[in-house]
Design a protein around this nucleic acid. Structure first.
Lengths: 199, 199
DNA sequence: CCCTTCATAGAACGGTCGTGCTTTTCGTGC
DNA sequence: GCACGAAAAGCACGACCGTTCTATGAAGGG
């Protein structure tokens, strides 16, 4: 691997961590360079623009996310165990020490939702993939007979993610020590409802 | 009313609308002044600092929120109707034309969750009040016999808000046309579960 | 009608932003 | 070991940031 490729990767790692705290907008090239002990222009040379940096940060975060949350869950048994693993994995991801500011995608979602452009497009695609992943896991749980046949798996994925967003809000903004317990209780209710057929 | 008081109020109205789009961080004094046809320093004189402006924007938004969401719901019948009114009111609030960028509190939550200071404190207090309001409505629904006696009303409030956050994400970031239908379905499931005792 | 008080404008500050251009340093294949 | 190309630094730019100071204009009470 080229020397440049290595620094490029190092920059992105630090950038992801930093962006989770200050956001993609707040992530400044000067600040990032200082954190890494690089010069501003030296760092800038790796990306042609700040937008490109933001896009690559999102892509790098997606790679880490896949490795830390999705892939481990795919190693679990098909059906409900995998669905639960995805949920647990996300909770761990959100409070992980690697992301001092919590899930970077949630932070980015708020600041990009009205800012059209490549960064927003990249984020939306990633979130779509993630929701599809959740829905697919639920679909398998239906096929395995763990969840009821008539379950709306997209709705389940949507609701599951809503619980995660609620956790993020309670934990990171409100600093609610019960946040995780609340999230687990909400998710358990979701799973229970998915199991038993609607009366 | 003093002349200054009037402009002060006008500034805050525009600031709230602008901040819902670009965030509290992105809300610049120069940009806000230009939008209003004022000079930067003339506007600045109304607030001793940018932080103070942010705090007052949050407070002004809270007043509007109370008038548009909370107060109308308090006019509804005690119990489940009022709980539903709070939910409906929030959905309307979030997609209201007044807030082109969606609920300003959700946007602020993401950018302030790791930024200690007066603005964060103000936001957290407002969110606490809002969650208390939701919980209190649920508590009344229990007292009225609409919800089961053993219902954990704080958990219900938490779950209800999570559905709202899920709606915001689906609607504003993902531009999902089904966002509202999904949110209503999720909320109905929550209400149904709150009615029938846990087996 | 004057005089004080208040509201706004104007100009300027130090700082940081993203972004180019030019130079120097350094890793690497021959 | 040298030369070539990549990588990083240095420097400068225009723009915008929050903030301060000073001056000007309008409002309002006597």
């Amino acid at each position: 691997m080229r020397k440049g490729e290595l620094t490029h990767q190092t920059i992105l790692e630090t950038a992801v961590r930093l962006a989770s705290r200050v956001g993609l907008q707040g992530l400044s090239i000067g600040g990032l360079a200082e954190e890494l002990g690089l010069s501003k222009s030296g760092l800038f040379a790796h990306f042609k623009s700040k937008t490109e940096l933001q896009v690559q940060v999102l892509e790098a975060a997606t790679v880490v996310f896949t490795g830390r949350v999705v892939r481990p869950a795919l190693g679990r048994a098909r059906g409900e165990p995998r669905v639960r693993a995805l949920f647990d994995g996300w909770l761990t991801w959100d409070r992980d020490s690697l992301l001092e500011g919590g899930c970077i995608f949630v932070a980015a979602a708020a600041e990009l939702d009205d800012a059209p452009g490549p960064a927003r497009d990249t984020l939306v695609q990633g979130q779509r993939d993630w929701l599809d992943c959740l829905a697919q896991a639920a679909r398998i749980a239906v096929a395995e007979g763990h969840f009821q046949k008539a379950l709306d798996v997209e709705q389940f994925a949507h609701d599951q993610y809503a619980v995660m967003l609620g956790f993020h809000h309670a934990k990171r903004l409100m600093r609610d020590p019960q946040a995780e317990a609340r999230a687990r209780r909400a998710f358990d209710a979701l799973v229970t409802a998915a199991r038993t057929p609607t009366s």
